[in-house]
Design a protein around this nucleic acid. Sequence first.
DNA 1: TAGATTGTTAATCGATTAACAATC
DNA 2: TAGATTGTTAATCGATTAACAATC
Lengths: 216, 216
Amino acid sequence: MNSNPSIDSKIPKAVVSRLSLYLRELQQLAREGAATVSSKRLGDRLGFTASQIRKDFAYFGQFGRPGIGYHCEELVTKIRSILGTDRTWPVVLIGCGNLGQALLGYRGFSPQGFELVAAFDVADELVGRQVGDTEIMHLSRLKEVVQQKKVRVAVLAVPAEAVDAAVDAIIQAGITGILNFAPVTLSLPKQVGLVEVDLARELEQLAFTVLQQDDG
Amino acid sequence: MNSNPSIDSKIPKAVVSRLSLYLRELQQLAREGAATVSSKRLGDRLGFTASQIRKDFAYFGQFGRPGIGYHCEELVTKIRSILGTDRTWPVVLIGCGNLGQALLGYRGFSPQGFELVAAFDVADELVGRQVGDTEIMHLSRLKEVVQQKKVRVAVLAVPAEAVDAAVDAIIQAGITGILNFAPVTLSLPKQVGLVEVDLARELEQLAFTVLQQDDG
DNA sequence: TAGATTGTTAATCGATTAACAATC
DNA sequence: TAGATTGTTAATCGATTAACAATC
């Protein structure tokens, strides 16, 4: 139906979330020297059915060859282009408390092409301080920096009570995507994308799982 | 059907994951002075339907009163008891590199009752070092510490190539739940619970979302 | 050619939403 | 009592799996 082989209009969220997993495993397979892989083998390694993998890939076009399978490198390139990780993303950090400073020290962002270009806070005792090779700036300078460095993505790591002010500044600055670590329900204009990471919530899930293990 | 008001045998994973959200919002409502809340109001605040909320709560018994709604404090207590966050969980950290040290510095675990009691690594240059108020120990001492402090939960923050050795040690030590930050597919004996946090994956999801915003 | 494996349609499964009698 | 809201069953929706003709 869609003659243009690029992105199909409506990809289920569940599919996109599996794409990252496929990418990781295909890169691993390529490193192991595999030129191609079947949906069966990829599925076995990830714990998915072969059907699901073929269905997911079919959203993006026809990549496999019957009798052969999928070419690993080709698929890696394709998935990276779909996800947008084939380019560099300048990122700003909002909130330099405990978690924020932890994230500043964490260098796991760069491999995916995300580069922390500036960090912001409102606390007098933090503004001006140097953390790693980033200087903490006052939040009032956000818009200026975002425009100058063409930043589209913000990592939000402020405490719950600072969320509203931070979100206002983020929207004013023209940011279009937020990775939110703050444990609150954000309401955003629909043109701003949102991905949530809630460590407290993950820990709660784990506690529940362990209780089930031990007495369930 | 289940006369025992405790946990029903099979709760869908999706329901458990929403429980954390309900908990957070109910605590907020309680702070705002609300004695009770209806499924409609709670749903509006979280972006869920009233039906879904009533269905979810029904897994755990009958809590609401027709015409009145749910008692906030009572439900908070109940959810915390279901999730297991009404007690203290001693936790060990495995892997004290970039991310591990970031997590050591992060004090957001304790509010949920999780207490980091020890940290482990295998690198000579890390073992013996003090980070915050935790001393890094060699991984070979894991079992001893786990047994002595009755630890059931481990946070795994090692690089991909160190995962196998770490998982072996974790299982040997008798740990029953892992919060995994390592970007690999773990295969664990089924008596060990697993919750995954993959920051690279979250960033990929965000990149995709932003691309869709801007050109979709 | 025979065997393997795709892309896709149909069947199944599970989760969400709507509806409504019961009840505070 | 009348209005609000629950708990639960039935209807709907979406996502996963199975099946199979097409094709390398």
